[in-house]
């Protein structure tokens, strides 16, 4: 079982990102589970969502405390207490940032990859919503699911030009990160 935690701010499509990733897992023939961390969400407030992906039905419903991977939609969240909690040493952290990984602080000991997801989304979608680009980069890094599964998940929500632009964004974002860099990281948190 792969457990992933997604951090973002209210309004960035954090829960949607989690739902899309779990739906993509389903589209690829796996089981997926996604849920928000149930805060009283407000625009701009730090929020988190959890995703689990497995070949078998997923029965546990607790929050993800020791994620194999972290997706961070706003680099400033690295300074928010709790964001890096439970992350094992060497875990993959994908951060929406225009800076190089080496320029970021507080993430020593983790395998950090950055992607200028907001800029990419602004260019291609015309909206500064980083979630799709980050998911595409995450799938490229891990090889966990084919990009086509993510496109299929998006196709359940969007059609026409919006879907076409998202598909273009996926191709662009996936090409910006080293493919398969995290393919050997497999971490299933047991009891």
């Amino acid at each position: 079982m792969i457990e992933i935690r997604i951090h973002g701010r209210g309004g960035q499509g954090n829960v949607v990102a989690a739902y899309l990733l779990a739906t993509a897992a389903f589209e690829a023939g796996r089981y997926g589970q996604a849920f928000p961390s149930f805060g009283a969400e407000r625009r701009g407030a730090p929020v988190a969502a959890f995703v689990r992906i497995d070949a078998h039905p997923i029965r546990r419903r607790c929050q993800v405390r020791q994620p194999a991977f972290l997706i961070v939609q706003d680099e400033a969240l690295l300074h928010v207490a709790g964001v890096l909690d439970g992350l094992p040493p060497g875990a993959g952290v994908l951060i929406n940032s225009g800076r190089e990984a080496e320029a970021l602080t507080r993430v020593d000991g983790f395998d950090v990859v950055t992607l200028p997801a907001t800029a990419l989304a602004s260019d291609i979608l015309g909206r500064p919503v980083p979630n799709t680009a980050l998911l595409a980069a995450f799938l490229a890094l891990t090889g966990l699911l084919p990009q086509q599964a993510l496109i299929a998940a998006l196709a359940e929500r969007f059609s026409g030009e919006i879907l076409e632009r998202n598909t273009r964004l996926i191709e662009q974002a996936a090409g910006r990160v080293p493919a398969g860099h995290w393919k050997d990281v497999r971490h299933a948190a047991g009891p």
Binding site: V15, Y19, Y31, G32, Q33, A34, F35, P36, F38
Partner: peptide, 10 residues
């Protein structure tokens, strides 16, 4: 509430 209502699953 939330644990089931807001959880996406197969």
């Amino acid at each position: 509430g939330f644990t089931l209502t807001h959880t996406l699953e197969v």
